[in-house]
Computed example of a mutant assay.
Amino acid sequence: MFFLMHCRHHPGQDAVRDALRPAHRDWVRSGGEGVVSVLTGSALWSDTGETSGHWGILEAPTPDAARAFAEGDPFATGGIVAEITLTRLADSFAADRISPRMTG
């Protein structure tokens, strides 16, 4: 199953986000220690140039696995994520068009 993950951040957290970024990138590369595969993702920015969140496209065996990945992310455990939204994508989602994946 494929999911669009959208994580909204608390405002004014750029310094904390910067400090957590290396651990966040390791989490993404590992797929949450093998829980999911991350196809792609990016930071989200406000019009004022501050980060407002991040998003990703995940391949996960279950919705619970996708949620476990999102909630285990250092950005979430570090307190900068205010809200996580997971939306299941169509079974026909063309994942093969995204290469290389962020998770090996």
Rank of each mutant, 00 (worst) to 15 (best):
D96E: 15
T85A: 13
G32N: 04
H24K: 08
R29C: 00
D26Y: 00
L89V: 14
P74T: 12
F69C: 04
D26N: 14
D26I: 14
T85D: 10
R8M: 12
S30C: 02
H24E: 07
L58S: 03
T48I: 12
V38L: 01
A70I: 02
P63W: 01
F75A: 12
D73G: 06
G79K: 11
P100M: 11
A66I: 03
G31C: 02
F3Q: 03
T103L: 01
I84M: 12
A43F: 09
P22I: 03
R25L: 15
S30E: 05
F69V: 06
D64S: 05
P74I: 09
V16H: 09
E83Y: 12
A82R: 15
W45P: 08
G56M: 11
V28Y: 11
A43M: 09
A65L: 08
G78N: 07
A90P: 04
S92Q: 10
E33W: 05
F69N: 01
E33S: 08
D14S: 07
D47S: 15
F69T: 06
D26M: 11
P63L: 00
S52H: 03
P63F: 04
S42N: 07
W55S: 11
V16S: 09
F75S: 10
M1P: 02
C7L: 05
D47N: 14
M1I: 03
I98C: 13
A15E: 10
G56P: 09
T48R: 15
I57S: 02
A76N: 14
E83D: 15
G49L: 03
G104L: 08
D73N: 00
G12C: 04
A60I: 00
T77V: 15
G31R: 08
L89F: 14
A82C: 14
G34I: 01
I98V: 13
S92V: 07
S30G: 03
P22C: 02
L4H: 12
G104E: 07
S99V: 12
